[in-house]
Amino acid sequence: MEIKTVAIIGLGAMGILYGSHLAKKMPQADLRIIADQQRIDRYIKDSIFCNGQQCEFHYVTPEEKTSPADLVLFTVKHSGLEDAIRAVKNQVGKNTLILSALNGITSEARISQIYGHDKVLYSVAQGMDAVKEGNRLTYAHMGFLCFGDREPGSSSSKVKRVADFFAKMEFPYLVDTDMPKRLWGKLMLNVGVNQAVAVYGSNYGVIQREGQARDTMIAAMREVIVLAEKEDIDLSEADLDYWLGVLSQLSPEGKPSMRQDVEAGRYSEVELFAGTVIELGKKYGITTPVNQSLYDQIKAVEVGY
């Protein structure tokens, strides 16, 4: 069954990035941006811009009755996941496939509890360096969306459906046959880069060069490697080197989402990153001092909001 209609929930950096690309490749009515009426009114009044170009989006409220979408993309922050799950109810039908581009290792399981494991493919967004300020997004590298089946070692017809669609849309993607490891690898990356850049107050450049920020980032990532082994996930120093290579390709002037949150006075995803590491450390009796320190420093900033 060919994918023809797409629903995106969440117009943060990733939602704008993916939405603006797809909007240029498919009929406007076939790409639905799901948002409540208050948000829609604001988007229309202020407009949304991507690399200086105004985005022409087709907005749909959660209450609006439409045919189910063939593909639903979750691009919200973790704090907005529960509302987003409810908001896409009218978009999910018998043959709908779902990709969650959220950070962390838990969103797929939560979405599956509501809509079923048969609809959810595991996915990870990586390589993007988008910066969102107000209603304007700028980026140099779009990155790509990596996805695959929940069970390692398989590549189903559902994965092929999405891959065929992305190829047709010229949407950068990669199919991975070990998505649990990929999810943990992305968690390791975020635990390092998001938190180190947020605490040391700069951009990607601060962790691309030698120094305290980079050392802290790597130390935080190594704490994830130890915990992954306890969860039967085969993360290693080679994987850490791979993700450092991904970071080296990003624009030095770009900023990860947590740094953008701190600058804007928004609450961050620290619970999703250091919070997850700390809780798993307690579960297995393993100390995680670097992530504890990063957690405490970021929380201290948020107390002042």
Rank of each mutant, 00 (worst) to 15 (best):
M1E: 11
A7M: 15
G12A: 09
G19R: 10
A29C: 09
D41K: 11
R42P: 03
I44W: 12
I44T: 14
F49I: 08
C50E: 10
Q54E: 14
C55M: 15
H58K: 14
H58W: 13
V72A: 07
L73V: 04
K77H: 04
K77I: 03
K94P: 10
K94V: 03
T96R: 04
G104N: 09
A109L: 12
S112M: 11
D129A: 07
A140K: 15
F144N: 12
P152D: 08
P152F: 01
S154G: 11
K158D: 11
V159R: 09
R161I: 01
D164R: 06
E170W: 05
P172F: 03
P172W: 01
V175L: 11
M188E: 07
V193T: 03
N194T: 00
Q195D: 01
V199S: 00
Q208L: 09
M217Y: 02
A219P: 09
E231L: 14
D232Q: 15
D232A: 15
A238K: 15
D239C: 12
D239Y: 05
L244Q: 14
V246C: 14
V246Y: 15
Q249G: 15
G254Y: 03
P256F: 00
S257I: 00
Y267R: 13
Y267C: 06
A274K: 00
G281K: 07
G281T: 02
G285A: 06
G304F: 06
